[in-house]
Design a binder for these strands. Structure first.
Length: 505
RNA sequence: GGUCCGUUCGUCUAACGGUUAGGACGCCAGGUUUUCAUCCUGGUAAUAGGGGUUCGAUUCCCCUACGGACUACCA
């Protein structure tokens, strides 16, 4: 059997959004599952839409989430170059071949001509004005011009495009791995431009030529391409090439209402739509990313994989390798999936709390460094062991543990009102003294010491625990009191008690 | 408007003719806990509507409704 070769082919017009990442992911999973190759091709045939930084963004995003490619922009490969603008010369001869074999023709219409044609047809009540079998006879092209007129226009340098000549009366079949057989009548297709007047091929031409030359076996792309798939099938046939298999993925929809997920939804609903943070080079507009928001790449991928695909079992936590193992198009759904930001958080929480303490500690240390706080990895490991399961996003690691690195400056009024009694200072002083005399600072022993104190003095548990917690962390949150004391150590604990007592009396 | 694709709890989805229609997120309630979380247990909630086919339809067919994509010398 032929080696599986698939590609992800974005155009560098801006940041990649998570729908694009999912398309790349499914390509990757399919390739790896079948021991094939996954390539990255940049489709930059539209020079007017080029956005600086977009290509670098795409590569960085793929690298961040572990969707690595075997050939492509940045790393090269046997079919280099992988940027279509650098393959410009390749396409022309195939367009010429189509013209000479009667499957394509030259068209000299200006954009004004085209507009007029559309207006004229609309006025006549035609629903979809197209450059097609019905209208091509009224336009300026090598079908209506004499051969002499055509060649003289060509020679004099008139602007022209090359359009495909769609056959008149034919049922075109597209076989889709997800949707089965899709049938479209050729009379519904228009004579799409294959070659633009600026000398660049359009997407339709370039993608067929490149997929063939790069020996792509499966075209896995978004559903928005389904309507033009029949055109592509025709192109493969006219060029005499074997068409790859197609798989058109359902779209990612916005969480509320309907329609496909867009950049605006993220701003509106407060969740990232992009894998990485992005600043628009022109407008300066900023879009948040999953990475910067504190998501783990593994969680991000796991979440994305299950949006539109399911394993057929009740398992839902998967490593990348496990995904590769079980992925198949049979289990990709046909309908669009609404994106659920809450589920994304759930995945991240799961991954964060299952992270080895050392890994979590490294994330925490990075935050600490940014804040100019010095600590040891060993200490951070102990902190994370206590707080990681309380964190949903990476920054929560700090939000849940800052008091291990600095004494509280203020104390929660509500806790004071509820638990701070006239006798509290005296009791805390006693505990402080008791702790000073304690040498075993293990959590277990500390727990016994504090609870023993409470019992021996016939006090309420909540009374002491809550005030002790208050003076140590400043409020009513955090891990167990004994655990906090244990990690803080004798000096710091005693210190915090006396400092708080000065403030709270 | 036209073409194409789609439609199971609020959301992601399972059930490829026979199940009390299952799981997960969310939400609600209880439990664990010195706090807040976590965690555990339970609960809530769905086959868009109408016709067929069939002994039997979530499942197959048709119609309707609704939703989406596409409809550029953009990808």
């Amino acid at each position: 059997m032929k080696e599986v070769r698939v590609r992800f082919a974005p155009s560098p017009t801006g940041p990649l959004h998570i729908g694009g990442v999912r398309t790349a992911l499914y390509n990757y999973l399919f390739a790896k599952k079948h021991g094939g190759k996954f390539l990255l091709r940049i489709e930059d045939t539209d020079q007017t839409r080029f956005v600086p930084g977009a290509e670098a963004y795409i590569i960085e995003a793929l690298n961040w989430c572990g969707v690595s490619y075997d050939e492509g922009v940045g790393i090269g490969g046997p079919h280099a170059p992988y940027r279509q603008s650098e393959r410009k010369e390749l396409y022309r001869k195939y367009a010429d071949q189509l013209v000479s074999e009667g499957h394509a023709y030259y068209a000299f219409d200006t954009s004004e001509d085209l507009d007029q044609m559309r207006d004229r047809l609309k006025a006549k009540g035609v629903a979809t004005p197209q450059y097609d079998v019905f209208t091509r006879g009224e336009m300026v092209n090598s079908l209506t011009l004499t051969p002499e007129e055509t060649s003289s226009r060509l020679e004099s340098g008139d602007a022209y495009v090359i359009r495909i000549l769609i056959p008149e009366n034919e049922e075109i079949l597209v076989n889709d791995l997800i949707r089965g057989e899709v049938k479209v009548h050729s009379s519904r297709l228009d004579d799409k431009v294959l070659f633009k007047s600026d000398g660049m091929p359009t997407y339709h031409m370039a993608n067929i030529v490149d997929d063939h030359l790069m020996e792509i076996t499966h075209v896995i792309r978004g559903e928005e391409w389904l309507p033009s798939a029949p055109l592509h099938v025709l192109l493969y046939r006219y060029l005499g090439w074997e068409a790859p298999q197609f798989a058109h993925l359902p779209l990612l929809l916005k969480p509320d209402g309907n329609g496909k997920l867009s950049k605006r939804d993220g701003d509106r609903l407060g969740f990232p739509v992009f894998p990485l943070h992005w600043t628009d080079p022109v407008s300066g507009e900023i879009s948040s990313g999953y990475r910067e928001s504190g998501y783990l790449p593994d969680a991000f991928i796991n979440m994305l994989a299950l949006l539109g695909w399911n394993p057929g079992s009740e398992k839902e936590i998967f490593t990348m390798d496990e995904l590769v193992e079980v992925f198949s198009f049979e289990r990709v759904g046909k309908s669009g999936s609404k994106f659920d930001p809450e589920k994304a958080k759930w995945f991240n929480h799961h991954y964060l709390s299952n992270l080895p303490n050392e890994d979590a500690a490294r994330l925490l240390v990075a935050i600490l460094n940014e804040k100019g706080i010095n600590t040891t990895l060993e200490y951070a490991v102990q902190v994370c062991a206590m707080v990681k399961e309380r964190a949903v996003l990476i920054p929560d690691l700090w939000d849940q543990s800052w008091f291990f690195f600095q004494a509280p400056e203020s104390f929660d009024e509500k806790v004071i009102q509820k638990f701070w009694k006239p006798e509290t200072p005296a009791l805390l002083n006693k505990i402080s003294a008791l702790l000073e005399d304690t040498s075993d600072f293990s959590v277990e022993n500390l727990d016994n010491v504090v609870k023993g104190f409470i019992q021996n003095n016939n006090l309420g548990m909540g009374q002491i625990m809550n005030t002790l917690r208050l003076v140590l962390v400043g409020g009513s949150f955090g891990p167990g009191v004994a655990a906090i004391i244990s990690l803080l150590g004798k000096d710091e604990t005693v210190n915090r008690i006396s400092k708080a007592l000065e403030k709270l009396g």
